[in-house]
Amino acid sequence: MEQVFKRPVSLKDVQTHFCPGCHHGTIHRLVADAMDFHGVQQETIGVASVGCSVFLYGYFDIDVVEAPHGRASAVATGVKRARPDRFVFTYQGDGDLAAIGTAEIIHAANRGEDITVVFVNNTTYGMTGGQMAPTTLVGQKTSTSPYGRDRKKDGSPIKMAELLAQLGGVAYSARVAVDSPKNLIQAKKVMREAFGYQAQGKGFSFVEVLSACPTNWGMTPLKANARVGEEMIPYFQLGIFKQEGNE
């Protein structure tokens, strides 16, 4: 009998530490699929960030450098300049990329570093226990916005995929979700496309993935999954915001 669904070879055959219903595991699978699709597993160097995805090396069967919190894009810049013949990606949360690491992501993107950045937006700081993130929705309660995010005091949730699409160095910028089969199919396509941009040396590619964090949202896995479609997608619209050579 033909096997129609199997683990990407870039993923290790191990259990993850992610909470039940967390989308990190699904996103890992998409990244591994994109590596498999382009046949680059053996020549890839991944850059892990500080957040719930810090154990990247435990799940991906590739070489990995662990970056300080927020600095993955700078570390990846150093890696790619030293090994331009290698495939380099970072995997960063929204605290990591859109708060403490904002300078590094903007400038790596603006320089047009030939790397791929996978950005996991779960509207909170997962690892440290659900504090407010730059992506926390207005009104959303977190452990440090107990009265809900106040647009006047805390600012508006930052839209990284749109923001980066404005920069000259960016070749590809998109936002996807993994909450439904339809969105998942699109996410898989986009992830492959983004990695393809690097495989062809076209420049900086960026994929923002909307992600559920049931634990810190205080929801069941099913409710958390539903929240992605009900609350996140209306604000963080899905789409491809830049696709150089395909305008």
């Binding site: 160097i45 850059v47 450098v65 970056a67 300080p68 600095r71 700078a74 570390v75 990846a76 810049t77 150093g78 890696v79 790619k80 300049r81 030293a82 090994r83 300078a103 590094e104 903007i106 400038h107």
Partner: peptide, 16 residues
């Protein structure tokens, strides 16, 4: 863009 970025670029190149 900063000294923070440059030391981390060094980290990346050195890791290679």
């Amino acid at each position: 863009e900063s000294e923070v970025a440059s030391i981390n670029m060094l980290l990346g190149a050195s890791a290679c």
